[in-house]
Simulated assay, not measured.
Amino acid sequence: MTFAQYDARALETLDAMSKKYKSIPAFEANLAYTLTNDTEKVNEEFKGKITVKGDKYRLVLPEQEVINNGTTVWTYLPEAKEVNIDSYDPNSDEINPSKIYETYKKGYKYLYLQDKTEGGVLCEEIDLVPEKKDAQYFKIKMFISKKDKSVQSFTMFDKSGNRYKYTLTKFNANANPADSYFTFDPKKYPGVEVIDLR
């Protein structure tokens, strides 16, 4: 059993990956999202799309959309015709998709494991382990492309045996979404019930 630490090799790769994403004003990517739990025999896969611009992001999955403009989070459930509105807390333990490339900087130990091919791309496999024992996820496994330092996939492991894996494909670094794309306008969704949790 290797104890998680602050591994210099992992840090070098993570810093290069972080620098790459910070230099991109906005990006879009297709997303494959897999939830597995071996004990519960769960294996679900969804396809979606993520758009990120600075602190803002919009995550579109078949059953929900999550929109965050940096201060407010809207969770839209098309089938239920409802949207939940909440304040965004940048200090919460929630993993923010627009900040996955910075997650390691605060509250995590990191360890380089091996070079491994993931989705046909040679990657460095790096584990992030939270310093807090009661963290929501006990590990985040990242596969970072050796060639261009892009994130190929990341998997979050929680204590109840769930594994949430996000794989990024069709990465577009030249996206130019309008700021309005990162807010939810109920007028455009007739009949939607607004639940304000703020």
Rank of each mutant, 00 (worst) to 15 (best):
residue 1 M to H: 15
residue 1 M to Q: 15
residue 3 F to T: 15
residue 5 Q to P: 11
residue 6 Y to F: 15
residue 6 Y to H: 15
residue 6 Y to R: 14
residue 7 D to S: 07
residue 8 A to H: 12
residue 9 R to F: 14
residue 9 R to E: 14
residue 11 L to T: 15
residue 12 E to C: 04
residue 14 L to S: 06
residue 15 D to A: 15
residue 17 M to L: 07
residue 18 S to G: 12
residue 20 K to P: 10
residue 20 K to D: 08
residue 21 Y to C: 08
residue 23 S to H: 03
residue 24 I to T: 01
residue 25 P to L: 10
residue 27 F to M: 09
residue 28 E to P: 04
residue 29 A to M: 07
residue 29 A to L: 06
residue 29 A to V: 05
residue 30 N to D: 15
residue 30 N to P: 06
residue 32 A to H: 07
residue 33 Y to T: 03
residue 35 L to H: 11
residue 37 N to C: 00
residue 37 N to H: 01
residue 38 D to K: 12
residue 39 T to D: 15
residue 40 E to T: 07
residue 42 V to Y: 02
residue 44 E to Q: 09
residue 48 G to V: 01
residue 48 G to M: 04
residue 50 I to L: 02
residue 50 I to T: 02
residue 52 V to E: 04
residue 52 V to N: 01
residue 53 K to C: 05
residue 53 K to D: 04
residue 55 D to W: 11
residue 56 K to G: 05
residue 59 L to G: 05
residue 59 L to N: 06
residue 62 P to A: 02
residue 63 E to H: 13
residue 64 Q to F: 12
residue 67 I to Y: 03
residue 68 N to K: 10
residue 70 G to Q: 03
residue 70 G to A: 05
residue 71 T to C: 03
residue 73 V to R: 01
residue 76 Y to P: 02
residue 77 L to F: 15
residue 78 P to V: 07
residue 79 E to I: 13
residue 81 K to C: 10
residue 83 V to L: 00
residue 85 I to C: 10
residue 86 D to S: 15
residue 87 S to P: 08
residue 89 D to P: 03
residue 92 S to E: 06
residue 93 D to S: 14
residue 93 D to M: 14
residue 93 D to A: 14
residue 95 I to H: 11
residue 96 N to G: 05
residue 98 S to C: 02
residue 99 K to R: 13
residue 99 K to M: 07
residue 104 Y to G: 00
residue 106 K to D: 15
residue 107 G to V: 06
residue 110 Y to V: 08
residue 110 Y to Q: 04
residue 113 L to R: 09
residue 114 Q to R: 08
residue 115 D to K: 08
residue 116 K to W: 07
residue 117 T to Y: 01
residue 118 E to A: 02
residue 118 E to P: 02
residue 120 G to Y: 03
residue 122 L to V: 09
residue 124 E to S: 08
residue 124 E to F: 03
residue 125 E to L: 04
residue 125 E to F: 04
residue 128 L to T: 08
residue 129 V to D: 04
residue 132 K to E: 09
residue 133 K to H: 08
residue 134 D to V: 04
residue 136 Q to A: 14
residue 136 Q to L: 15
residue 139 K to A: 06
residue 144 I to P: 01
residue 145 S to N: 07
residue 147 K to Q: 09
residue 149 K to G: 05
residue 151 V to Q: 00
residue 151 V to L: 06
residue 151 V to D: 00
residue 151 V to G: 01
residue 152 Q to K: 07
residue 152 Q to N: 11
residue 154 F to G: 00
residue 156 M to W: 08
residue 157 F to C: 02
residue 158 D to G: 05
residue 160 S to W: 12
residue 162 N to E: 01
residue 163 R to F: 05
residue 164 Y to Q: 09
residue 166 Y to R: 00
residue 166 Y to P: 00
residue 166 Y to V: 04
residue 167 T to S: 09
residue 169 T to P: 05
residue 169 T to V: 10
residue 171 F to C: 04
residue 171 F to N: 01
residue 171 F to K: 02
residue 173 A to H: 09
residue 174 N to G: 14
residue 175 A to Q: 03
residue 175 A to H: 06
residue 175 A to K: 06
residue 176 N to W: 13
residue 178 A to Y: 13
residue 179 D to E: 13
residue 179 D to I: 09
residue 182 F to H: 03
residue 183 T to H: 14
residue 185 D to A: 12
residue 188 K to P: 07
residue 188 K to Y: 08
residue 189 Y to L: 08
residue 189 Y to T: 11
residue 190 P to L: 08
residue 190 P to M: 06
residue 193 E to Y: 11
residue 194 V to I: 12
residue 195 I to E: 05
residue 195 I to Q: 06
residue 196 D to V: 10
residue 197 L to Y: 11
residue 198 R to H: 07
